[in-house]
Write a protein that binds this DNA or RNA. Structure first.
Lengths: 149, 149
DNA sequence: TTACCCCTTGATGTGCACTTTAAGGCAAGG
DNA sequence: CCTTGCCTTAAAGTGCACATCAAGGGGTAA
């Protein structure tokens, strides 16, 4: 598979795939006799992994550190574990920040509807839609925050 | 309160506070007779709101659009609602991506321990620590992904 | 042969969200 | 009077993660 097909398959641009290779986020890719990249499914899976971790906010630098520990087949399990745990911590914090912001916006959204001229049907539909997210912290966020924002 | 104190109170640099004001993420700040910013608690709360939304991944541009709808005290409730819902969608998707990546790394972490020379005590401690996160999707992620990554 | 479409590398450009620098003003302390 | 320490604005610089461009090569089809 050439780089364009790989790009279409993964949704990652050709330039980004080359960039990832240069930055060692994916292993050195095999070349055809004329020097073109010949991309197989193993590379595709790694591109997808990189995409997932990038979407989750992991930096190129952290991702490279993490991946290099795997590519070097030495006994660095302890470091791998430490790196994983570190990254997990970062991501869990990020997730919680995100959840807090979501709760904040949901709170605002609910207060909107109190002042809106929407029909009862619309109101109940939206309440159903957001019921699960509001359930835990229903309508009472932190005291410190400016409820106008 | 001068800008330095506000910076210390919020953890946001003075330059960033000035930048936020210029970008209309916070309202025009009152000045002392000599032209220095005089920051009150209302501004502090807005800075904190901005910080929270930024941490959640909302762009400056989206944040400004959102805030301007509030600063203009017209009847734009519909647009406010639409913008809020749009942003909520973005953030929920982001949160889910993040959770997927966390699950992926937790899966890896668990498989590490199977091959590690750690003591039983360490193992059980870590399992307790991560029990809640693994509970829902215990040990069986998607088939498509490269389990070496 | 020309056109077209794919590819290569290396260099340079881009957008975001700030950070840093430059040049200067005001007020207090020694 | 001079230094210190806060402030101001405008402009330029920075780091990340790519995107785009320039200059060239290969393969196929009309």
């Amino acid at each position: 598979m050439n780089i364009k097909e790989a790009s279409e398959k993964t949704g990652v641009s050709s330039a980004a795939i080359r960039y990832y290779e240069k930055e060692s986020l994916i292993p050195a890719i095999d070349r055809t006799p004329v020097g073109n990249r010949d991309i197989d499914d193993r590379i595709i899976r790694r591109i997808r992994f990189v995409t997932q971790m990038r979407a989750a906010g992991m930096s190129i630098e952290n991702l490279r550190r993490y991946i290099q520990l795997f590519d070097a087949q030495e006994d660095n399990t302890k470091e791998q574990k430490a790196l994983l745990q570190e990254q997990l911590g970062v991501m869990e914090e990020k997730r919680d920040d995100l959840q807090a912001a979501i709760d904040h916006l949901n709170y605002k959204l609910n207060h909107f509807y109190d002042h809106m001229e929407s029909t009862e049907e619309e109101l109940r539909a939206l309440e159903r839609e957001h019921a699960d997210k509001v359930a835990k912290q229903d309508d009472t966020p932190e005291d410190e925050s400016d409820h106008n924002f």
